[in-house]
């Protein structure tokens, strides 16, 4: 590699660069790649037969269904909430705006276990609403609704957090232009706002989905660990592991890992796509002006 004098003057000496890169790679290998590989190695150690048997086990299948159901409810809910919150914060001035932003961050700051306990306190037999719920025969805690609620709470900030800076940066001029041209509020949202935030929104949805599927702490507190009924994938992994069914535990864990990796790949694809769109626009601009 040729290094010009200027480059040499503003970059670190080669030894420092190599050391830093080596350190990063070593750290990643030790704490990320190896454990990840171990998951798949352990899962497949007793052969493919055992592996697939663990996945089609009725309890495991129920856990997969519940996990997907949770994500399917939590993500759309947070999608609507996230857009509404980001819209309100980015496009309007009102009192208590900073309080609202802080509140949205609350699930990031609070330990997931505490989040779960909040729901126990509210909906549990001794909780505020417990007696009323029992009287009306509504089951929230130790049932699917409780798990969904806990998941929604934990994944609450992802989409809103992704959209707020984006929408603040974009400002409201395009929306104003649409209104002056006679567009209604809905038309403005569908035709102007949504297309402008689509990449950020997709990115937030991916992050939110990954977290919704992987959440353990909060869900663990409210689930009650009823096999085949209130166990999500992460809880199923824990149960199998505690029962010394290592191959099965790792098989389910590998499935969860694959889901996470898929989400990661989608996220990378979105970033790449957004980057390409920007680059194409810039390149074309250079062409016009050149």
């Amino acid at each position: 590699m040729l290094v010009s004098p200027i480059q040499r003057a503003i970059t670190e000496p080669p030894i420092v660069r190599r050391l830093l890169i080596g350190l990063t790679l070593g750290f990643l290998t030790l704490f990320l790649f190896l454990p990840l590989a171990a998951v798949f190695y352990e899962a497949l150690r007793k052969g493919l037969g055992v592996y697939f048997a663990a996945l089609v086990d009725p309890d495991a299948a129920a856990a997969i269904r519940l996990t997907l159901l949770c994500a399917m409810i939590a993500v759309p809910l947070n999608l609507v909430f996230g857009i509404a919150a980001a819209w309100a914060i980015a496009k309007f001035e009102f009192h208590g705006k900073s309080v609202l932003i802080t509140l949205i961050d609350l699930p990031f700051a609070v330990s997931p276990v505490i989040a779960g306990l909040i729901y126990v306190l509210m909906f549990g037999a001794q909780g505020w609403l417990g007696p009323w719920l029992a009287a009306h025969d509504i089951k929230i805690l130790f049932a699917v609704p409780g798990i969904v609620l806990a998941t929604v709470f934990v994944t609450f900030p992802f989409i809103a957090r992704e959209l707020i800076p984006l929408m603040q940066e974009q400002g409201i001029e395009e929306e104003e232009a649409a209104l002056v041209l006679g567009a209604s509020g809905w038309q403005t949202f569908w035709r102007i706002t949504l297309p402008n935030i689509k990449w950020g929104l997709l990115y937030g949805v991916v992050l939110c989905t990954a977290r919704a599927m992987g959440e353990f702490g909060a869900v663990s507190v409210v689930s009650g660990h009823i096999r085949g009924a209130t166990n999500t994938l992460p809880l199923q992994v824990e149960i199998l592991y505690n029962e010394y069914q290592f191959a099965a535990a790792f098989a389910v864990a590998s499935l969860l890992t694959v889901l996470a990796l898929v989400m990661l790949a989608v996220k990378a694809l979105i970033e790449w796509q957004a980057h390409q769109t920007r680059r194409a626009a810039l390149a074309a601009k250079g062409e016009t002006e050149g």
């Binding site: 001029e173 104003e176 232009a177 649409a178 041209l181 402008n196």
Partner: peptide, 17 residues
């Protein structure tokens, strides 16, 4: 604003990107 039938040109164009 949508019923006033005015044309508005913004300083930073505000074209739909």
């Amino acid at each position: 604003v949508r019923d006033r039938n005015v044309g508005f040109v913004f300083q930073h164009y505000a074209l739909f990107q």
